[in-house]
């Protein structure tokens, strides 16, 4: 059983919803990323999603675009991100790490070398925004499977039922439900709409469901936690990194931990009401 599956299994037994913070690796500075990951765990993260910066983040809103530009200004590469995960893993053997990004940096490294190095670094899952199940068949899936890495695919409000089978068959770990039609950090979350879609999704896929995009505050985290197995928070945390270029890592760490707290509280409140 993968580290991701084990984590969801344990949380389910405890009646808890997973909180998954996203940060962009290398933002605001590559030296602070590993410390920020540990701080997120201390502040209540159950899994960590680590963004691999890419020059053309076409599914991301302005907050993560800017974070990407900050990370790339420091030359943060996929190889360096894997190094950060390896460093994190030396002190934290438990918390699953999912890489989230775009296809090209992985293509440039090569599917097999990437999968080997990711596994060795202690990565648990990979989510590639612009590599849907249809395009995963030319070596990508096989490389990840061989190394025991979970393939995490997105499901969107527009995804027809006919495509869910491919997501179910090819994916592993958890399903990432995109809560809205839009880019990351958009302000268009519709709780009733998400509830309807997630309920339908559960009919077709027997796997933990995480909800992300547009979860801006603890209240929305609370609403989403009532619907799903995991709540993913990205832009709201990444926004806190703005203006911290050149700041000491201690300040970055404190800022990100403080920012995660209301989301943890929101998720816990939902768990107490629904499951507790």
């Amino acid at each position: 059983m993968s580290r991701i599956a084990q984590t969801f299994d344990r949380l389910r037994r405890q009646g808890r919803t997973a909180l998954i913070p996203y940060i962009t690796a290398g933002d605001p500075h590559p030296d602070c990323t590993v410390a920020a990951m540990h701080a997120l765990v201390a502040a209540g993260a159950d899994l960590i999603e680590l963004g691999v910066p890419f020059s053309d983040p076409m599914a991301d809103g302005p907050v993560i675009q800017k974070a990407t530009e900050r990370a790339l200004a420091h030359g943060t590469s996929l190889a360096q991100v894997l190094g950060m995960v390896a460093a994190f893993r030396r002190q934290d053997p438990h918390t699953p790490v999912v890489l989230m990004g775009y296809a090209n940096p992985i293509e440039a490294m090569g599917y097999v070398p990437f999968a080997l190095q990711a596994r060795a670094a202690g990565v648990d899952g990979v989510l590639t925004v612009d590599l849907p199940p249809e395009e995963a068949l030319d070596g990508y899936l096989e490389a990840l499977k061989t190394e025991g890495l979970d393939r995490i695919f997105l499901v969107a409000p527009t995804t027809p039922v006919s495509r869910l089978q491919a997501v179910a068959d090819q994916g592993a770990g958890f399903v990432y439900y995109v809560s809205l039609k839009g880019v990351t950090g958009a302000d268009a979350l519709d709780v009733a709409d998400v509830a309807e879609h997630v309920a339908a999704l559960k009919q077709h896929i027997n796997r933990p469901i995480g909800i992300g995009f547009g979860i801006r505050d603890g209240e929305r985290a609370y609403e989403m936690a009532k619907l799903a197995d995991a709540v993913i928070v990205g832009s709201a945390l990444v926004k806190e990194m703005e203006g911290l270029q050149g700041a000491p890592c201690q300040q970055v760490v404190e800022r990100v931990a403080t920012a995660l707290a209301p989301f943890r509280a929101g998720v816990d409140r939902a768990d107490e009401e629904v499951k507790g």
Binding site: M58, A59, A103, V129, D130, L131, P132, E134, E135, D138, F153, L154, V155, A156, P157, T158, T159, P160, R163, V178, K181, G182
Partner: peptide, 16 residues
């Protein structure tokens, strides 16, 4: 080996 549909999930239905 070129071309394909390397698009975000939200667009897959519209592209289909």
């Amino acid at each position: 080996p070129y071309g394909g549909i390397f698009a975000p999930e939200t667009l897959m239905a519209a592209l289909a």
